[in-house]
Amino acid sequence: MKKINKYISMVALGALTMVFNACTDECEREASPVQTDGITAYIDFNTPTSFAFLPDDEQSFEIKIGRQLTTEAATVHITAEGEKFNVPQTVEFAAGETEKAVKITFDIAIGASASVKIGIEEGDTYIYGLTEQTIKVARDYTWVSAGSLTFSDPIFTGAEGELKVEKAKEGNNLYRIIEPYCEEGAGIHLQFTLDDNHNAVSLLPVGSLFDLGNGYQLYYVPEQYPNYCFFTNEGNSFNFGFLFTDNGSDLYVGNGSFVWSKEYPGK
């Protein structure tokens, strides 16, 4: 038996050697072609895909455009899709310049977000470079402390705990509960509005899916589903209902409540 095993091992080793040699002979690949002409422009691979701004921040950001061939001066043509953004149509390179910072400005309301797709025009691109990038910008409110509340979650965790509340300095009675459903540090907050008498008006957003940070998305549409989507209160005790989904199509009924125990504005 030992001899048979030895024989098989030798045959297998020989076969492996033949395959390796054959692969060495037949599987060699030609080197990738080198681009030796054209503008050879690209977008920096480290370009962020999102930016966040506070109300007092300038509504602008920069991206870097580089090029592979730098001997001569060149004009790189830029494409852009996003009506809220002002993107230069061209970038001028002097002879020897390898990289240029391009300033992009935008104009959106506080609390809003928008996206722009920036690209290098076909014919100016470097074949191995990043030639387009979609970038999202958001203008957040200035959030200030508004006390704390006891939050009850009977749907996802069955837990009850004390959470912080913040108010938007620039908002119209806009508040948010800090990370009620997500892991600590994930930064996903539940927003809601009150009227001038500090009574419940609405959860936010209305009519679109909102990622809760726990594998589910909230869907709050009170006009369409008034029996399931609601936000009410008696004094500092609030109740709310919503729909949620984990696949964007199947909807489930959810609810929760909180007691605004510290710094409730209605007191």
Rank of each mutant, 00 (worst) to 15 (best):
H198V: 00
K267N: 11
T105S: 04
G66L: 07
K262T: 15
A41P: 00
K267Q: 12
I188V: 04
K117E: 01
I155G: 09
T232W: 12
A109L: 10
G215P: 01
E122K: 12
V137F: 04
F156R: 14
G254Q: 13
Q224W: 08
E62R: 07
F53D: 09
V201R: 03
Q217S: 15
G158V: 08
I8E: 04
Y126R: 05
A12Y: 01
L163E: 05
N239E: 12
E183P: 00
V87K: 03
V144S: 06
T71M: 08
L203T: 06
P222G: 14
T245D: 12
K169M: 11
V19D: 00
Y225W: 15
S60D: 07
Q133L: 03
T24M: 04
A52W: 01
K84A: 14
T75H: 01
D37V: 02
T193V: 08
L149I: 12
D107K: 12
T157H: 06
T98W: 11
E122I: 11
K100Y: 06
K164T: 11
A80L: 02
R139E: 07
N5T: 02
E183T: 09
E162N: 14
Q133P: 00
K64V: 05
A159S: 14
T98I: 12
G38K: 01
T70Y: 13
T245R: 13
Y141E: 11
A80R: 01
V116T: 03
N199F: 00
T150V: 04
T232M: 09
T90N: 14
S152H: 14
N233M: 08
S261W: 12
V137G: 03
D124Q: 10
P222L: 14
S202D: 14
A31I: 08
T79R: 03
T49Y: 01
F156N: 15
G256Q: 13
P226M: 04
Y181A: 01
W143G: 08
P88L: 01
L54I: 06
E160Y: 04
K6C: 04
E234T: 14
L194I: 03
G171Y: 10
L54G: 10
M10C: 05
C27W: 11
F242S: 15
A101V: 07
A41T: 01
T36V: 02
Y220C: 04
V116Y: 01
I135L: 10
T150N: 11
G111C: 05
T142D: 13
D195I: 05
I127A: 08
L174H: 13
T245K: 14
P222R: 13
I78Y: 06
G215L: 02
L69N: 11
S249C: 12
T131V: 15
I63K: 03
T40Y: 03
A109E: 15
E72R: 05
S113V: 07
L69T: 08
V137S: 09
Q68K: 07
P205K: 02
A73L: 03
E99W: 12
P154M: 11
Y216K: 05
L209M: 12
L174A: 11
I8A: 04
P226C: 08
T105M: 02
N173A: 12
I135R: 06
Y7P: 00
I177A: 02
F85V: 07
A101E: 15
L69I: 14
V221K: 14
S237F: 11
Y228S: 15
F53V: 08
